[in-house]
Design a binder for these strands. Structure first.
Length: 469
DNA sequence: TGAAATGTTGGGGCG
DNA sequence: ACGCCCCAACATTTC
């Protein structure tokens, strides 16, 4: 019989540092590092286009860090694992937990099946600061409001794991029958729209570490105020790295905690808290991606005008701040959080679309598309979630732009056809005098759309619709 | 992690 | 000096 090996099954933990399952796997035996591309179980939430692109490059980066030893498979996860166990002398299979409801279910079955052949199977916490089942109210039920969840639930629980170093002595095993390359997974789009994403991102564990370092050295100073201004460098943009586990929340948490206590630091930490909260909601309300948490919203009279939806998707609503956000999303795979709230409110409240239309578009376009964060956030902005924004809180894209992009730097970058408009009319070009428009070479309806809806009347329509439920 | 409508206050112009 | 009006600035309420 060949030498005993352990398997480390990489999933949303594409890193070597602070990887609890990997660190366990390298003890005592050589390790077969594997990745399985198995998208079939995910239903409507199969990987979106942008996510596939990121995953492709992230796997390449991981494979390099593993000296090319990553074994890649595609197909049914359980079949592939059982096949490995039959062919190789596997002693144990280790992985870090994922929290999508179907994965929780599948992982439990896989664990059972592996153990039934006398092979050890063990899962670890590699992606959350606190496991959802460790943070409960004193009556044993899950929190539904963020502040007590974070302040009482998380911060009073035992502190998160201190990051553990990368294994220093990896002995790798090989699978001679593994012939699949990362390219062969076909994660890149056939029409290479992904090229425009490239200049905006450095992918992989090393890039994530550098980004964290840079952020804690400069961006975090002034975070509390600056994070609301999309033109300012005060947000970390770590979300895609975090989603794919190129960096763990523990590393970010610990880096922030090592800085001097400040308002900025507390606010940044609480954003990690929101990520935990979303995961807790998904864990205790697995229907979160599909069902309004507040049932009364099931009766809401949503509109459904495909043309309107398209205008929103491609950033042609005639509201420059909304269009800037939607185009940022399309061009870079990312959108600043302030603008996410504005475009979300616009879709759900001004256009009166069900939040799932927004959730789907974001799922396909966002590099940081994450089931827990995306679903919870869309339910939040729609007012139907747990601890959601009140439904009557409707953003005005004009005043939001004036407030949070006062110099128009962000908006002009993504809506360049309006670049020559003075600040005064940048967010409301339909109110600009004729000569101002002419001077900026803009004819509304030709160079830039007229507003597709009226803010005042749609706002009133939304409030009336809300009242009706 | 809103915005609009409504209410209150206080300074200044003016008869 | 006084009452009156206007209105900006701020506060509160409502959606």
């Amino acid at each position: 019989m060949s030498k005993e090996i352990n398997i480390h099954w990489f999933r949303q933990d594409l890193r070597l540092i602070d990887n609890p399952a990997l660190s366990e796997a390298v003890k005592q035996r050589s390790v077969l590092p594997i990745y399985i591309h198995d998208d079939e179980q995910a239903g409507r939430h199969r990987l979106g286009g942008a996510s596939r692109w990121w995953l492709h490059h992230s796997l390449k980066s991981l494979n390099e860090a593993l000296n090319g030893m990553l074994c890649v498979y595609a197909g049914n996860t359980q079949d592939i694992l059982m096949n490995l166990i039959q062919r190789l002398n596997v002693k144990a299979v280790y992985w870090n937990r994922c929290y999508e409801p179907w994965r929780i279910h599948h992982d439990a079955m896989i664990k059972k099946t592996i153990r039934s052949c006398g092979v050890e199977a063990q899962s670890f916490n590699g992606s959350l600061l606190w496991e959802p089942w460790k943070v409960l109210k004193s009556d044993g039920t899950p929190y539904k409001v963020f502040t007590p969840f974070f302040k009482n639930g998380c911060l009073n629980a035992p502190p998160p794991r201190t990051p553990i170093p990368a294994p220093d002595h990896c002995q790798f095993a090989q699978d001679s029958l593994c012939k699949l390359s990362i390219d062969a997974l076909g994660l890149l789009p056939r029409i290479r729209w992904d090229k425009q994403l490239e200049p905006h991102w450095q992918i992989g564990e090393k890039a994530a570490q550098e980004k964290l370092k840079k952020f804690t050295e400069s961006g975090l100073i002034g975070y509390r105020e600056g994070r609301d201004f999309p033109a300012k460098p005060n947000v970390s943009r770590l979300s895609p790295h975090l989603h794919f586990g190129e960096i763990s929340p523990n590393q970010i948490w610990s880096a922030a905690l090592s800085l001097e206590d400040s308002d900025d630091r507390e606010h940044f930490l609480s954003e990690l808290g929101w990520r935990e909260f979303s995961h807790s909601l998904l864990y205790y309300f697995p229907e979160l991606p599909h069902k309004n948490l507040q049932a009364k919203f099931d009766r809401f009279p949503w509109s459904n005008d495909a043309g309107m939806l398209r205008h929103w998707q491609i950033g042609q609503t005639g509201y420059p701040f909304v269009d800037a956000g939607m185009r940022e999303l399309w061009q870079t795979g990312y959108m600043h959080n302030r603008v996410r709230m504005v475009v979300g409110s616009f879709l759900v409240k001004n256009l009166l679309f069900h939040w799932q239309h927004g959730e789907q578009w974001f799922w396909d376009c966002l590099l940081d598309a994450d089931l827990a964060n995306n679903s919870a956030s869309w339910q939040w902005i729609s007012g139907c979630g747990a601890d959601a924004a009140p439904y009557f809180r409707i953003f005005n894209p004009t005043t939001q732009g004036q407030k949070f992009d006062p110099t128009g730097e962000y908006t002009r970058q993504y809506v360049p056809e309006l670049a020559a408009l003075p600040d005064k009319y940048l967010f409301n070009p339909w109110e600009a005098p004729e000569n101002v428009l002419r001077h900026a070479d803009i004819t509304l309806g030709i160079h830039y759309p007229k507003p597709i809806i009226d803010l005042k009347t749609t706002r009133e329509r939304a409030l009336a619709a809300f009242k009706s439920i």
